[in-house]
C-alpha cells in the first residue's frame, strides 16, 4: 500500500499589540481576508509587554514559530514601547541564532490600517515554516 504522506500543519503563536496588529487582524477578518488557521494570536497591551521568556516558553511548549508584532517604530501608543521591543527581540534573535534556531522567531511592524500587510507577513511565515516542517 502506498504510504500517503500526511501533511503536517505548523502552529504559530503571535503576540499582537492591541493598538495596531490586533486591530489589523480584526480588519483582515472584516475584509474577509484569510490567514492560516495555525496562527494563534495573543493580544498584548503593547509589544513591549512581551517578555522574551514568553517567546521561549511558547517554543518549548510546542509552537513551531513565534512572532511578535507591534506598531511601526515611532508610532507606539505608549510613545516608546516598541523601541524597547526592538532591542529585546533583536537580542533574542541573536541568542536564537547562537542556538541555530533563528528561523523560529520573527518581528513584524504592522499598523492598524495594514490588514493586507498583516495577512501577507503571517501567511509568508506560515508557509516557510510549513515547508521546513514537512521537508524534515
Amino acid at each position: 500500500m502506498a504510504e500517503e504522506k500526511i501533511e503536517k500543519n505548523p502552529e504559530i503563536v503571535g503576540f499582537a499589540c492591541s493598538y495596531c496588529t490586533f486591530k489589523a487582524s480584526e480588519m483582515a477578518g472584516s475584509l474577509r481576508m484569510k490567514y492560516p488557521e495555525g496562527v494563534k494570536l495573543i493580544q498584548v497591551p503593547c509589544s513591549s509587554r512581551v517578555d522574551p521568556a514568553f517567546v521561549i516558553k511558547a517554543i518549548f511548549e510546542g509552537a513551531d514559530g513565534v512572532f511578535v508584532a507591534g506598531c511601526h517604530p515611532g508610532d507606539c501608543h505608549f510613545i516608546k514601547g516598541n523601541y524597547y521591543t526592538r532591542r529585546k527581540i533583536a537580542a533574542l534573535k541573536e541568542m536564537f541564532d547562537a542556538f541555530s534556531m533563528k528561523d523560529k522567531l520573527r518581528l513584524f511592524w504592522v499598523s492598524a490600517a495594514e490588514a493586507r500587510r498583516f495577512v501577507e507577513k503571517v501567511t509568508g511565515m506560515y508557509n516557510e515554516i510549513k515547508e521546513k516542517k514537512n521537508a524534515g
Binding site: Y84, R87, I89, K93, L107, F108
Partner: peptide, 28 residues
Amino acid sequence: FGYMSGRSFEEPIPYVTFLEEELKDAED
C-alpha cells in the same frame, strides 16, 4: 549594543534604553 557589563557606572543597561535610529534590519 557595544556594551560591556560593569565597565562604567554611566553606561545604561541596553534593555532600559534605546536609540530611535538603530537596528533597521530587526524587522522580518
